[in-house]
């Protein structure tokens, strides 16, 4: 297996966790209910924790001595490999929940399969992360249903969020060259089979939430290949990296 492809793949996993965790952490102290503030912080904690393990391992695989922090804090937009979905802004709680659900549903099947990865270290990370991700999916599914089938207002907000975010769901299961290489070497699952599971899960929850999936939506991608991120990522990094950039080369 080409080394660089495995590195790329680990960056994708790590960057997804980091950027979504970062987004969720923006809610900290501003949640709609104190209990949900805690719950979202909890998920953010899990995700940044996962990002640490994954980026640490990515740095090891790359073999240039880069640490988790060098990877997180010293790469610019073009070198980030997260999907576009996770860098979308929090919006209202409906957007945050919908973004989370659309990601969790994918991440759940992805990590379930990664528990069988041919790579031992990734297998270990996946085993630990999967338990957390299963909880995330339960949480976001429950809120999809609760808000979709709640009041007239919440229903409308959820439907609007789904319309806004659905176009970023395709990238999750899009098969790229790196994915083909990972599949060949048994590192990662076939995204085509993940897509089946994903579509089923999303359809079921969306239906229970009394929402409607947008039809014939253009699917935008470009995040995980690094070809074209959205304008949001630069601002995320400006914040995330501020201290490291303003005071280079120091221990914190």
């Amino acid at each position: 297996m080409p080394h660089s492809a495995f590195f790329e793949y680990l960056l994708r996993l790590g960057d997804n966790a980091l950027i979504l965790g970062h987004r969720l952490s923006e809610w900290c102290g501003h949640g709609p209910i104190l209990e949900q503030d805690i719950a979202m912080t909890n998920i953010a904690l899990d995700q940044v924790g996962q990002a640490r393990s994954l980026l640490q391992y990515a740095g090891q695989v790359e073999g240039k001595g880069r640490t988790e922090d060098q990877l997180a804090y010293l790469r610019d937009v073009g070198d980030y490999r997260n999907v576009l979905l996770v860098e979308q802004p929090n919006g209202d709680f409906a957007h945050t929940i919908t973004r989370q659900f659309l990601f969790d549903a994918f991440n759940y099947f992805q990590f379930e399969a990664l528990k069988q990865s041919s790579d031992e270290h990734l297998r270990a990370i996946a085993a630990k992360s999967f338990k957390e991700i299963a909880y995330h999916l339960r949480y976001s599914s429950e809120w999809m249903i609760r808000l979709g089938d709640g009041t007239e207002e919440s229903h409308q907000r959820m439907q609007a969020a789904l319309e806004d975010l659905w176009m970023f769901s395709g990238e999750l299961t899009e098969v790229t060259e790196v994915d083909e290489l990972m599949l060949e070497t048994g590192v990662a699952p076939d995204l085509r089979s993940i897509k089946k599971l994903y579509d089923e899960k999303v359809a079921a929850i969306v239906q229970e939430a009394t929402l409607v999936l947008p039809a014939d939506t253009w699917m935008q991608s470009g995040g995980k290949t690094g070809q074209m991120h959205s304008e949001h990522l630069g601002f995320i990094l400006a914040e995330l990296q501020f201290v490291q950039r303003a005071y280079p080369g120091m221990e914190w």
């Binding site: 980091l18 970062h22 952490s25 923006e26 900290c28 102290g29 104190l34 503030d37 805690i38 912080t41 909890n42 953010a44 904690l45 940044v48 924790g49 990002a51 640490r52 980026l55 988790e68 922090d69 997180a72 804090y73 914040e239 995330l240 501020f242 201290v243 490291q244 005071y247 914190w252």
Partner: peptide, 20 residues
Amino acid sequence: TRAPSLRRKVALLAKIQDEA
């Protein structure tokens, strides 16, 4: 969102969560 390392970010999030 500006914690200078991922370890610090996790610790700060956990602290604020405790306060909640």
